[in-house]
Amino acid sequence: MVNANEWLNEKIPKNQRAQATNLTIYKQCQNGHTTYQNGCHYCNNKNNFSNPPQYQFFSTLLEGELDLNDFVNLQYLYIYGSGPGQDQQQKLTNLKIDKCNKLISLQCNNPPISKIAIGETKQLIADRNRLKSQVEKLTSAIRNIKGFNPGDLKLVAKKIEEENLEHQVSVTKNKFDEDDKLWLDLLLETQQEVLQNDNTFARKQLEKIKKRLSTVLTTEEIQEFLGKVVEINELGIQLKNLKIQKNQW
């Protein structure tokens, strides 16, 4: 594992970055190995393809910040891990591409990036890729159903709604200071408390929190957050009821 910016400085000189249109980074070697294999030609040579304007790097595991703002003509950016496990993912924590104004395709498979510095166009690309991934999950669930089981579809739907809420919270928090972030978390927690216990105290607290957040969010934005919590909660109840019905059969 190497520091991402140090790796970048070694692999692509700054005076060549403006030429780049494609950048692909793979954790595994070209033969598909996720860990070094001594007898593998690709593991030993890495078979990196560095020919501006296209760059491909194999057997590369990065950590920390990756600043690509010198790649002003970059159109395609792909950063791949090699599986769902933490040890199989890239370790990037910050991806800077807010000056890559020509970017039209962005895919980051598996890296737990906590902050992506992007403009509105790149945000649309990221949202589109996230939606594509969710559609693929739903399609896969439908194809794999052996006999119709509504519980399978509801489980996938619940996971998608949870991902959407998590994404929306993350995007919103990027605009907030630490205090506002805590208030947003409290909003979601209190809404969940209202749905589960429906007590007067929780409802009063929810109104106070909504009033506090109204200084940084519109009424519609607050309601959208609350609505997503309701949807996830309802799907959870439906799944629980389906499980009870299944056990009674």
Rank of each mutant, 00 (worst) to 15 (best):
G64W: 03
F58H: 09
F71A: 01
Q54S: 15
D67L: 09
L68P: 01
E63A: 14
K46W: 11
D70H: 12
E63S: 15
N51D: 09
N47A: 13
F58A: 06
L62N: 08
N45W: 02
F49Y: 13
E65G: 02
Q56D: 11
G64H: 06
N47R: 13
S50D: 09
D70F: 06
L62A: 15
F71M: 03
N51R: 10
Q56M: 05
N44V: 00
F49K: 12
S50P: 00
G64I: 10
L68E: 07
E65H: 00
Y55D: 06
S59H: 10
Y42R: 02
F49N: 06
C43R: 05
D67K: 14
N69R: 09
N48E: 01
P53R: 11
F71Q: 00
E65C: 04
L66A: 14
Q54H: 12
K46S: 12
E63C: 06
K46E: 15
L66T: 13
L66N: 10
L68R: 13
F58V: 07
Q56H: 11
L68F: 09
L66M: 15
N45F: 05
L68N: 14
G64P: 06
F49H: 12
L66W: 04
F58E: 01
Q56V: 14
S50A: 04
T60K: 08
L62S: 14
L61T: 15
K46C: 08
F58W: 07
S59T: 06
F49P: 00
P52C: 15
L62V: 15
C43V: 05
Y42L: 00
L62M: 15
P53C: 10
T60M: 11
N51M: 05
L66G: 10
N51Y: 08
P53N: 08
Q56N: 09
F49L: 05
S59V: 07
D70G: 11
E65N: 08
T60L: 12
L61A: 13
P52Y: 13
P53T: 03
L62T: 13
N51K: 15
N45H: 08
P52M: 12
Q56S: 10
L61I: 14
D67S: 14
L66F: 13
E63W: 10
Q56P: 01
N51I: 08
F49W: 07
N44Q: 15
P53E: 04
F49Q: 10
D70Y: 04
T60N: 09
D67M: 12
E65F: 02
N48V: 04
L68T: 14
L68A: 15
G64C: 12
E63L: 09
G64R: 01
F49T: 05
Q54R: 13
G64Y: 01
D70C: 02
N45C: 02
Q54E: 10
N69C: 05
N44T: 02
Y42D: 01
Q54G: 07
